[in-house]
Design a binder for these strands. Structure first.
Length: 777
DNA sequence: CAGTGAGCGAGCTTCCGCTTGACTT
């Protein structure tokens, strides 16, 4: 057995390092943290200096035993976890759990996996930095105290099984407040004027697009302007050329990679991380959970070489980027290809795409600026003080743009910049071909996408590269927010066009406000957020994390005692907990919407046990009626008319084969019920409020037809069913596969029994897995 | 992506950050 045991955090990393270190070293990994606060109860003794109760979780026991065994056989254990707060804590937990003596351990760190860096680390070992460890303990314990003291208040005051936390609650707040901004937003219309000019000289042919530098507020003003243009002479007042530069973006961090993959490929944050993980495990890219934009000297060198080979010397510009985010801990490099000379890889289309993106971004970051020439042409109007302006941009040297251009968040904003403008001289007269004034509306602030939420969280220093994706999934599974598409609404707008000597007025329609994969708060999300902001303002403050991070830094620097820090936080915090338990109202977000003109009864909305509902009649009304809100409706913005419409369902629309046909909306959308069968309506075609009996019968017939095809054969308690995934055998509440190539119609009862028996033998495996997932739930 | 369309009764739920697996139809 080797004298030296090296423990890192990630097994993929362990593999590479072992190759570099040679046979005297055995390298293994801890798979992240090996123990954590007890899952049951608070896990912290608040009356005893916040003494933490650390437990090795069940899924880490085997690993810890293995590590114990290995460390006993080794002379020196090199604790090589990451060079940050969490990494230091992992090293410290390892020492404690493995019961390693100070003289047998050496703490080493390196933030690039190269032979040089690792050998250098081995030559310069240090002790475990207890201050840094304590900063981590303070972070961990504070998060536990916040999460486990505030969540139970929500169970009591709002709804069972809800959760609150330093990170997730602020993420939800961002989404709720953005929605409120949108609710309050008043769109303002202006008339934007643009023109197409042509040459006055018939020998010269060009078209120049220009826009007026000011907008008009009313149709009348716009029309007056166009009237004036009829008799105006247009003269080139000035042309101006200016050189400009564009610089490449920094290499990828976790959050910027998530943003770009979302913008360019529409990958979800989790999807990007899964693909990146696979690339990392295959040794194709560096670690994908990082907040650093740093590139190793090795990478800088090979980028230089690659650029020289592919594009030539003049495209090289070696740069090191400063990491933007203040909370960055920089335990790793930026995300980059391990070998920059590999311009492409084998793999799934998604893997190839993501690798290509990472490669381009990394290479571009080491290339020269792009050089541009921006041209502005101002056009004078003889009878008006307004001016038209045309702008153009051409690339005089492409530089990094040869390989990569960062995408923009607001891709729907098509700025009117064209490429090369015609060569015009001041004083030259040009002709108007067409001038239009189009009514445009200001847009509400955009709803968050996964990626833009991550970006915002990073700006606020909330969450870490390893938690962005899990946090998003938490706020969705708690049903605080939904991520979905919403159709837009139709809007009228006006367009005035001046051509020859006529002004044409058009009333046009456009679809606006359609959303794709955006976050919307739910009623529960809104209620919980309002409750938390009201009762725990300090923790919900956008600056809270940034502030406590300063304390953690002081602890890490040995300037602040971690127990004192926790105590300073906990005293006022716990008082808030007690206060809100005692004084705050249980909240149902109730709103009285008005009176139903038909029945004279009160209409109200609130959160009930199974979600948001509207109620017709007061609580003591024996004949009160309920209805659930539709998808996309919020209690906060529901109108009386919308509420009244909800009571129209379920709606009896007629009879078919002597049985009632009812239309309504359920958990899974609108449906038709007939003969105790539910038939989903077709999306975007049917509407439960307007569906006719004829159409309903059509749906019923269709469904009956499908059902008759569903059952292929039946032998007593054994059935052959044509399911969604193809035909299968159903027996005793369980489903069994039919082997490929076997025609299900020819199967006999005995064939089925044989298949069932054959597949039952595999059961022990599925049983244990069933138990596992059950205990997880 | 199949199927689904209900209306408490006790006890449980919950945090954030490190890591990767391995259950299917």
């Amino acid at each position: 057995m080797q004298e030296n045991l090296v423990i890192v955090e990630s097994p993929a990393k362990a593999k590479t390092i072992e190759k570099l270190l040679g046979k005297n070293f055995f390298v293994t990994s801890s798979y992240g943290h090996i123990r954590d606060l007890a899952k049951k109860g608070l896990g912290v003794d608040v009356d005893n200096n916040f003494k933490p109760d650390y437990i090795i979780s069940s899924d880490k026991k085997k690993l810890v035993d293995e590590l114990k065994k290995l460390s006993k056989q080794a002379k020196i254990v090199w604790l090589a976890s990451d060079e940050d707060r969490e990494g230091e804590a992992i090293a410290w937990h390892l020492q404690n759990v493995l019961k390693l003596d100070d003289k047998n351990i050496k703490r080493i760190t390196f933030n690039e996996i190269t032979k040089d860096a690792i050998l250098k680390a081995i030559e310069n070992p240090r002790k475990i930095d207890l201050n840094l460890v304590n900063a981590q303990q303070a972070r961990r314990i504070l998060d536990r105290l916040v999460g486990f003291e505030v969540s139970p208040i929500l169970w009591k005051k709002v709804k069972s099984a809800l959760s609150a936390g330093r990170v997730q609650s602020v993420a939800v707040r961002l989404i709720v407040e953005r929605e409120r901004e949108i609710m309050d937003f008043k769109s303002k219309a202006t008339y934007k004027v643009s023109a197409i000019f042509t040459s006055a000289d018939k020998n010269e042919k060009f078209q120049l697009k220009a826009s007026l530098t000011t907008d008009f507020n009313t149709e009348k003003e716009a029309n007056n302007f166009l009237e004036k243009c009829k008799n105006a002479i247009f003269t080139v007042e000035s042309t101006d050329k200016k050189p400009a530069k564009k610089s490449p973006a920094a290499p990828f961090t976790t959050s910027t990679l998530q943003q770009e993959a979302s913008r360019k490929f529409r990958f979800s944050v989790a999807q990007t991380m899964n693909i990146a993980q696979r690339l990392y495990e295959r040794g194709l890219i560096t670690y994908m959970r990082t907040d650093s934009t740093n590139l190793s000297t090795l990478a800088l060198g090979s980028a230089k070489q690659t650029i020289k080979n592919l594009f030539g010397e003049k495209y090289i510009k070696t740069r090191q980027y400063k990491t933007k985010s203040k909370s960055a801990q920089e335990a790793h490099e930026a995300i980059r290809p391990t070998y920059l000379q590999n311009t492409e890889i084998e793999g799934s289309p998604q893997e190839k795409k993501l690798y290509d993106l990472i490669w381009k971004r990394t290479i571009a970051s080491q290339m020269t600026d792009a050089e541009l020439e921006k041209t502005t042409i101002n056009i004078n109007i003889s009878n008006d003080k307004e001016k038209f302006q045309a702008t153009g941009e051409i690339i005089t040297f492409d530089g990094f743009l040869k390989v990569y251009m960062e995408s923009n968040d607001d891709d729907n904003e098509n700025t009117e910049t064209s490429g090369l403008l015609p060569a015009l001289v001041a004083g030259q007269i040009i002709n108007r071909k067409e001038i239009t004034a189009t009514q445009r509306f200001t847009q509400h602030p955009p709803r968050y996408t996964e990626a833009s939420l991550v970006k915002k969280m990073e700006e606020l220093g909330i969450g870490r590269p390893s938690t962005y994706a899990p946090t998003i999934s938490t706020i969705i599974t708690r049903e605080y927010v939904v991520k979905e598409d919403r159709p837009g609404t139709e809007r009228n707008y006006t367009k005035l066009t001046l051509k020859s000597d006529d002004i044409k007025l058009e009333k046009l329609k456009e679809i606006v406000g359609a959303e794709k994969s955006k976050f919307f708060p739910s009623d529960i999300g809104i209620v919980v957020n309002d409750f938390l902001v009201e009762n725990f303002r300090t923790i919900l403050d956008y600056q809270f994390t940034a502030k406590i991070e300063e304390y953690f830094d002081e602890i890490a620097d040995g300037k602040l005692d971690w127990i004192k820090m926790l105590s300073n936080f906990y005293k006022p915090f716990h008082k808030q907990v007690d206060d809100s338990l005692e004084n705050s109202q249980t909240t149902k977000a109730e709103r009285i919407l008005g009176i139903d003109p038909k029945s004279g009864k009160q209409v109200s909305a609130r959160i009930a046990r199974f979600g948001p509902i509207v109620q017709l009649g007061e609580n003591d009304d024996a004949e009160k009626k309920f209805s659930s809100l539709k998808k996309g409706q919020l209690i906060e913005t529901l109108t009386l008319d919308e509420a009244l419409k909800l009571f129209e369902l379920p709606r009896t629309i007629g009879e078919y084969e002597g049985k009632e046909v009812v239309a309504s909306t359920g958990r899974f959308g609108p449906y038709v019920r007939h003969n105790s069968k539910f038939i989903s309506m077709k999306k975007d075609i049917d509407d439960p409020y307007t569906i006719t009996i004829e159409r309903a019968i059509e749906l019923i017939k269709e469904k009956n037809q499908k059902d008759s095809e569903k059952n292929i054969a039946k032998f007593g308690d054994i059935e052959i069913i044509n399911g969604f995934y193809g035909p299968y055998i159903a027996h005793d509440g369980k489903n069994y596969k039919i082997p490929k190539g076997q025609d299900p119609k020819t199967l006999t009862r005995n064939d089925c029994l044989a298949l069932i028996e054959a597949q039952k033998n595999k059961e022990p495996k599925t049983k244990t897995s069933a138990r596992k997932s059950a205990t997880k739930k």
